[in-house]
Nucleic acid binder design. Structure first.
Lengths: 195, 195
DNA sequence: TCGGATGTCTAGCGGTGCTAGATTCCGTGG
DNA sequence: CCACGGAATCTAGCACCGCTAGACATCCGA
């Protein structure tokens, strides 16, 4: 079975190679530049090889997106142990920095409608992890509010700021002021509720 | 000059016809279905005619988006005079209903990066109007905070909820709970500040 | 060494946004 | 009334897209 093993291993490596190439190409030149021809050229195989690994281009983007969720989850986790600031602020800053420094990756994850299963279906673990980190960040300020709902609102606010900023819809300076304001709103409301 | 006038009028009518056809096609079958060939067929002209009116497909989408901003502005203005609820809530509900009932239009306006000028350049009046309505909705709860910044935060939250909901990222039930929570957060924070 | 399965490639389909050059249309002057 | 000239419009085509059928090569086991 060693031969079979070797083949499977090589196949898995190439699978990852394709995902990495797609992400690199997208991050370097945007998703418009990620065509099956260019991607095939980058991995030094012909186009049909891509289709022996993925059902189509969408599936490749989806794979990149899911990996991206893992990256985001790790960065949020890392931010959790930051000193000198609240968990909510640390998570917010980490989230927005991720969206800003890796816009193509963020785009695949949350902007393009790649319909990754989010509902009751088997949600990828990476997504669970990322959302879990958001929940953990929100928990200290939840007060009497519903934790998951508050997390969704927090996420929505972060996502809105991230995408509108990227689309140049918000004043570039004032980024800090917006962050201050949204954190204040969510936290102060908690204090009020807690009375 | 009457002949020239007639030609210009006909040209303007056809210009609008193209925009309307593009919007209708997008709202009926999504933006992927809006190809220059199908659009040309719908307006009963050949493709090059489109390019005599617009620089390219992007310019057509942009025109649809700008008109969409006008529609949104009017609906927000209408919501302003609603009885029995705060201006902020009325605006939020109107905004989210617009995004939900006209997803393709909303997509062109704020999701696809059509780089409509948002900065110091000549911002289309429709955009100014829409943002102005948001400012008016936020004003009653601004407290000591900066009005424009708070409006940006409010808009971001609405935009995040709208897009994540559309992408099936949020629990479909709980929509009301999220709205309640975000309005509470923004308003209660104001009360706290006001003390 | 050969047969067959597995893996990969070449070549092509119908579609896309966009455009050069041919063609048709129409107001105007003779 | 006709023929002309310029403007408006169309036909046909480019290079590219996602995707795939069928030819070809390659390698394992007998």
């Amino acid at each position: 079975m060693t031969i079979q093993n070797r083949r499977e291993r090589e196949r898995a490596e190439r699978h990852q190679l394709i995902i990495d190439a797609a992400r690199e190409l997208a991050e370097a030149e945007g998703w418009d530049a990620v065509t099956t021809r260019r991607l095939a050229e980058k991995v030094e195989y012909s186009q049909p090889v891509l289709y022996s690994h993925f059902k189509g281009k969408d599936a490749i983007v989806r794979a990149v997106a899911i990996e991206g969720c893992g990256v985001l989850a790790r960065q949020l986790r890392q931010a959790r142990s930051a000193q000198g600031k609240s968990r909510l602020r640390a998570a917010a800053e980490a989230y927005l920095e991720f969206a800003e420094t890796r816009p193509a990756l963020y785009d695949a994850m949350f902007v393009q409608q790649v319909d990754i299963p989010f509902g009751t279906d088997d949600v990828p673990q990476e997504l669970r992890d990322a959302f879990g980190e958001l929940v953990a960040a929100v928990e200290p300020v939840v007060g009497e509010r519903d934790l998951e709902t508050l997390t969704e609102v927090f996420w929505s606010a972060m996502h809105g700021i991230a995408t509108l900023t990227h689309g140049k819809r918000l004043r570039p300076d004032h980024h800090e002021a917006r962050l201050e304001l949204v954190l204040g709103a969510l936290s102060l409301a908690e204090q009020k509720n807690g009375l």
